[in-house]
Design a binder for these strands. Structure first.
Length: 195
DNA sequence: GACCAGATTGTCT
DNA sequence: GACAATCTGGTCA
C-alpha cells in the first residue's frame, strides 16, 4: 500500500532555497480546475536567490513584478517572459528575503489527456519537460500568481517517492550568474528539459 | 544529434 | 529601446 500523500506545510518553504529546490524533487504538484485534476512529479528545479544572484528577478530590488518574492514563503510566483511564456516558481525563505525555486519540469501523473490538448502534442515526454511547457500543460497563467501552495487547489504533496538520484548542474537560459550550480534534476528521468 | 532564426510583449533603464 | 529564468520548426549532418 502506497503511503498517504501529505501536503507540504508552509514551513517547508521557510528555509534555505537550495535545500528546498533539492528536496522538491520527487514531490507531486497538483492543481484542481473545475473538478478535474492535473498533476505531475517534480523532476527538475532551479534556485534563484536575490542576494548575490544577478539572474534573480529581485536582484535589483523590489518591483511590481517581483513583489511576491519578498513576501512570505509557500506562495506561487508566476511571471511572463519572451512575449509568450509563463514560468512557475515557489517562493522560499522568510518574509523579506527575496528568493524562489523555478519549477522546470514535471513527470505527468494525472490529467494527461487535458495536458495533451493544452500542449497540442501526444508525446508524453514533451508535455511538461520545460518551464514554459508545464505552465501551458497545466493552464498556469498570471492569474495564478500569489496562490498558496499549502492549502486550496494549487498544492505540492509528498507521496513518499524517494527512489532516485539527484544531479546538480548550472542553470539554463541565463547570462548573468550562469556559473552557480543551482539546478537540480532527477537522474535518468526522460521528463527533464535538458541533460 | 547540433545549430539557428523567429515569434511576440511585459518589464525595466 | 533593449532584453528576457523559452519554445518551435527549420536546416544540416
Amino acid at each position: 500500500m502506497a503511503p498517504q500523500a501529505l501536503i507540504l506545510p508552509q514551513s517547508f518553504y521557510n528555509r534555505n532555497t537550495l535545500a528546498v529546490a533539492e528536496e522538491l524533487l520527487g514531490k507531486v504538484f497538483r492543481r484542481t480546475i473545475s473538478s478535474s485534476t492535473l498533476s505531475g512529479r517534480i523532476v527538475e528545479t532551479e534556485a534563484y536567490i536575490a542576494k548575490n544572484d544577478p539572474a534573480c528577478h529581485a536582484f535589483n530590488g523590489r518591483t511590481d513584478r517581483n513583489e511576491i518574492m519578498f513576501g512570505p514563503p509557500g506562495f506561487a510566483y508566476v511571471y511572463f517572459t519572451y512575449g509568450m511564456h509563463y514560468c512557475l516558481n515557489f517562493v522560499t525563505e522568510p518574509e523579506g528575503v527575496a528568493a524562489a525555486v523555478l519549477i522546470r519540469a514535471l513527470e505527468p501523473i494525472s490529467g494527461i489527456e487535458t495536458m495533451k490538448a493544452n500542449r497540442k502534442t501526444d508525446k508524453i515526454t514533451n508535455l511538461c519537460s520545460g518551464p514554459a511547457k508545464l505552465t501551458q500543460a497545466l493552464s498556469i497563467t498570471k492569474e495564478d500568481n500569489g496562490l498558496p501552495l499549502f492549502e486550496g487547489n494549487f498544492l505540492v504533496e509528498d507521496d513518499g517517492f524517494l527512489d532516485f538520484d539527484i544531479v546538480t548542474t548550472t542553470r539554463i537560459g541565463i547570462r548573468q550568474g550562469a556559473e552557480f550550480p543551482w539546478r537540480f534534476y532527477i537522474k535518468d528521468s526522460p521528463y527533464v528539459s535538458r541533460k
